[in-house]
């Protein structure tokens, strides 16, 4: 038979050798993506829970509950830690999870490109099982990352929001999201996020190897409900602000 040439998808040398087999194997990288994904999903749920306080109005003294919530985040852990310490730890952990998730995705994408190579199907092909969400994970991930950078500049650091005042969470959100192009951007990005987590929440059980035929309907259902709840919750904020309900 003719000897055929292949470019290896993966070779074990350099930094890969130093880091060890598991964390550089594709299965290991998917495991990293799943673990960091769980952290990010937990963060997304907690973030939404906090943000929904925009609908709870003010306390007797006239302070917005969402402003009090942001104040409380700075004092996480009470007097056990210096002010902002636990919040900073959480932020560093969150940033690390994001970086690992994106790094693993980039390495895997590169490998998959090599594996698919220049050998794409010349005729059109049918998709029998994949769905829109699963096929747009990389594309959607990039949209989410770009949105995240804007979101940080807009409501965390305030660079993109001329009326930003640190600590006035309620006023900052109203000022930002009552501009309709910004509100639309938030809505589009959150739709992309919902698709991303619809596939990711189901997929992570498989990457971790905890999938089981008995629980598969549960994990599919959980992913659907979770993605839908995050979508509805996140969309409700820009819609309510744009409509003047808060």
């Amino acid at each position: 038979m003719t000897a055929t040439k292949r470019s290896p998808v993966q070779t074990r040398s350099g930094w890969r050798e130093w880091l060890g087999g598991f964390f550089t194997s594709s299965v290991g990288l998917k495991w990293i993506m799943a673990i960091t994904g769980i952290g990010l999903l937990g963060y997304i749920a907690a973030h939404l829970f906090g943000n929904l306080k925009i609908f709870t109005g003010t306390d007797a003294a006239g302070n917005y509950y969402i402003d009090l919530y942001s104040e409380a985040l700075w004092h996480l852990g009470g007097h056990l830690f210096p002010e902002g310490f636990l919040l900073t730890v959480l932020r560093v952990g969150l940033a690390a999870a994001f970086i690992l998730h994106i790094w693993a995705a980039a390495v895997l994408t590169k490998r998959n490109r090599v594996a698919r190579g220049s050998t794409r199907y010349r005729a059109s092909r049918n998709w029998a099982a994949s769905n829109y969400a699963s096929r747009t994970m990389r594309f959607g991930g990039v949209i989410i990352l770009l949105f995240l950078l804007y979101h940080l500049a807009d409501l965390t650091f305030g660079w993109a929001n001329p009326e930003f005042h640190h600590g006035d969470v309620f006023d900052n959100m109203i000022a930002s999201l009552s501009r309709w192009p910004v509100a639309v951007l938030y809505m589009v990005a959150n739709v992309a996020l919902a698709f991303h987590i619809y596939h990711g929440t189901w997929s992570l059980f498989r990457s971790l190897g905890t999938a089981n035929p008995r629980y598969d309907p549960f994990s599919r259902g959980f992913a659907t409900v979770f993605a839908a709840a995050i979508l509805v919750g996140n969309l409700s904020i820009p819609i309510a602000i744009l409509a003047g309900w808060v």
Partner: peptide
């Protein structure tokens, strides 16, 4: 992994398999 790409859990392989082998085995 020297030759092939990585799994993104699309499930296309299971649909294509002439023996209907489940992607649970991948997990």
């Amino acid at each position: 992994e020297e030759y092939f790409g990585s799994c993104t859990n699309h499930g296309e392989c299971e649909a294509a398999c002439p023996k209907n082998i489940s992607i649970d085995f991948i997990a």
